[in-house]
Each structure stands twice: as structure tokens, then as C-alpha cells.
Design a protein around this nucleic acid. Sequence first.
DNA 1: TTGAGATATTTTGTATACAAATTTAAAAAA
DNA 2: TTTTTTAAATTTGTATACAAAATATCTCAA
Lengths: 211, 211
Amino acid sequence: MSVTLKSEETVVDRLVDMISSGELSRAERVREVEISERLGVSRIPIREAMGRLESQGVLEARERGGMNVKAFSAKQINEICRVRAALEPIAMRDSIPHLELQENRIALNAIIEELKWAVDHNRRGEVARADIAFHRFLIDLSGNDLIRKIWSGLELQLRIIFRLELYIPTNLDEVVPKHLVLKDMLLRGDVEGLDQTVSDHVWPEFRVAED
Amino acid sequence: MSVTLKSEETVVDRLVDMISSGELSRAERVREVEISERLGVSRIPIREAMGRLESQGVLEARERGGMNVKAFSAKQINEICRVRAALEPIAMRDSIPHLELQENRIALNAIIEELKWAVDHNRRGEVARADIAFHRFLIDLSGNDLIRKIWSGLELQLRIIFRLELYIPTNLDEVVPKHLVLKDMLLRGDVEGLDQTVSDHVWPEFRVAED
DNA sequence: TTGAGATATTTTGTATACAAATTTAAAAAA
DNA sequence: TTTTTTAAATTTGTATACAAAATATCTCAA
């Protein structure tokens, strides 16, 4: 089962996979030797990857030594939403000119189709995935490297949050129309509309009870 | 000169010091052994600290191996400003209730006094430091851990940028009044005013020519 | 049976070691 | 002199090793 890896980038990627797939439960400590044996690398590269993931807010340093998959409180999830609501409108605004290329419009439509398919088949996991893909696509398109970087951290956190079933879209039926509205605004270049809508869009997808 | 260190947190801190003080020139490669000898620790903790600082955008991975102190382009500086302009209003809004405690108002005034002193004595480095302290204070006060975390990364980057003399306040005389306006709005709870002003405040402090 | 204390085991954190890769320096050719 | 080739010396990346700390296990008493 252990696949030998080359660069550390890959170790980070594999760890992210293991975390967002739930292969690494957030209940138990992430053991360095275990990962090390599974990936066929010594502990050193594993530790470095874990350190990076900790700075990204995906792993959490334990009180005295060791790491955990991060557990998110309602407060933290709300904070993520607020940051998204503040940053995504900027990225979307910047992505507008790039949507003049037909190639990009096609790609965006393809993602919306995936979203549609997932909703029609009631596949919540796929809905979450396509939802994330939609937003990442526009952020990548924006060309804003800082927002992209911040977002890639948030995306990993969202993957964990979605996985843990805390993601409860108000109504699956609303997901596609909402994204279509965003798409229309983007294609029309309706900046004010975007500012208004993205905040609402990003936000109330979450119903957080605990904490 | 080598001071023995305990935890890695301290290694990160020492590295940050060395970077933001300019002790580590951004021209040359950051040599692991050199740092390791200077701090009296082996290369392993140094590498881990460097990895973390790379995720934070303070160090930069070289093309094939090794690290550099990050060099910021005009585009990147503008991106930092835009993100600040988007996130700080949120944090400031949340900090308002905490400013009802006299203790916090006193602390805020103290920072403004430092700012005033630095301006009066034409100490640009100190102005930058106090300016940063002002913003960090409010962000800390907000209680928003995510914004705090994002900001602590940006702060390190700002320290480097300031250090490299790219920070050219339009006019030193404007710095104190501008912060006083912000303070008044915070104490009055003028949320709309803040949204408007913080963006302008954070932004045009930079005159970026290159790139 | 339950709880405290002591002992054994695991797990982390850091040092040392070594091979692969990269950079620097030197030598040779144009 | 300038460029290209070759060789030496750094420097990184990862493995192994070991001590300190933390966790789990066991023993014995209440």
C-alpha cells in the first residue's frame, strides 16, 4: 500500500488527501511513524509537511506535543464565512475581464453542470465539491495571488468542514439557481450586484448549531 | 553570540527578527547551517521554522532548493493592501464593543501617542512600527482568530516591505490625524464611516512605482 | 472494584550522518 | 579574453539514532 514519494509537495498533498477523505480521523492523534510508514518516507519530511499544514489551519498542535486534524467550532466556521464574504467579491470583480475568453466561460459552465448533476442526484458530497470548484475557479481566474493563497487554506478547512457534515445547505434546490445568478452578474459585469450577492451567497449556506 | 533556544516557536521568532531587522539580506540564500550555528540548534528545527515561514509568505522557495527572504513586487504589495482593506473593517467593527473597557481605550491612546512621538521626531521606522501596532491592536481586540491569523502573516510581510523603504507615507503629517479619525469613529461606533475610511486609510499609504 | 503510584512503552523533538543535487571554482579550449 | 568543460566544495534533503517527554500499563492498597 505504501507508495514511495518524491518531493515534499507530494507529502503535503497526500496528507491533505488523507485528511479531507476522513482517512485520518479527527478524534485521534496523527502519529508521525504511522504516516511515515504508510507513505514510505522517514519522519522528517512528514514532520515538515505537518508543520506546514498546521500553519494553514488544517492540523492543530496539541497541548503538549503532537497534532490533530483540526476540529472547527461554530465560531471558527462563521469566521471563515465572513472572510470569504469579504474577499471573494474582490476576486470575482477581478475575474470578470477574464470571462471574456470563451474558454473560461465554457469551463465555468462545465462546473455549473457538475453542480446541477450532483443536485439532481442528491449527492451532497459532490455538491460540496462542485460548489468549492466554482469558487476556486473564479479566484484562480482573478489573478490575485494573495487571495488565492488565503483561499487555498480556507478551501482545505472547508473540505474538512463539509466532510464532517456540518455543511447543510438551506435547500439543495437553491444551490444551482444561486450560482446561475452569480454567473449572470459576472458575465454582465454587474460589480455592485456581486458585492451584494456574494456575501449572502457565501454566508447562509451554513447552519451552525453547536457552541 | 549564539543563544541556545528551547522550543521551535522561538526559532520562528528569532528568524522573524533576523528577517525584519534586515539581518538576513533578501539578496542571498538563507543558509540552514549558518542560522543553525547562530542559534545554536541543529538544522532540523531551523528547516521546520523555515517551512512555516514559507507558508506564511515571508520566505520564498528557490527554484531548485533553498530559500530566500521574499521580495515583493508592486502587484503583491497592492494585493496586501486590498486584502487589508477588505478584512480590517470587519475586525474594527468587532473591536468596537471591546473599546468600552477603559483599559483598552487607554492602550489605544498610548499607541497613538507613540505614533505622534515618532512623527514629531521624524523617525520613519518608528512610525511604521506604531502604525502596525495600531492595526494589530484592534485586530487582536476583535476576537476574530482567523483574521488575526491572516493578519499576522500580512504583518510579517509588511515589516519586510516597510524595511525595504517601499513604505512612503504620502505625508508624515497626515498619519496621526488619520488615526485619530479612526479612533473617533471606533469610539462613536460609526460602522459605516469605518467601512469607508479604513479602505482609504490602508490603501494610499503606499506609493509603488516599480513593476 | 476503584484509585494512586510506579514502571514500561510509545511518541515526539532534535542531533548526527550521508547521499544527491547544486553551486562555485578551476582548467582547458576557442 | 571569453566561453565551455570538468572537478571540487557546499548545501540541501532525508534517513537513522537517541534522549526527553508523554502516554499507557501494571501493581498494589483501600
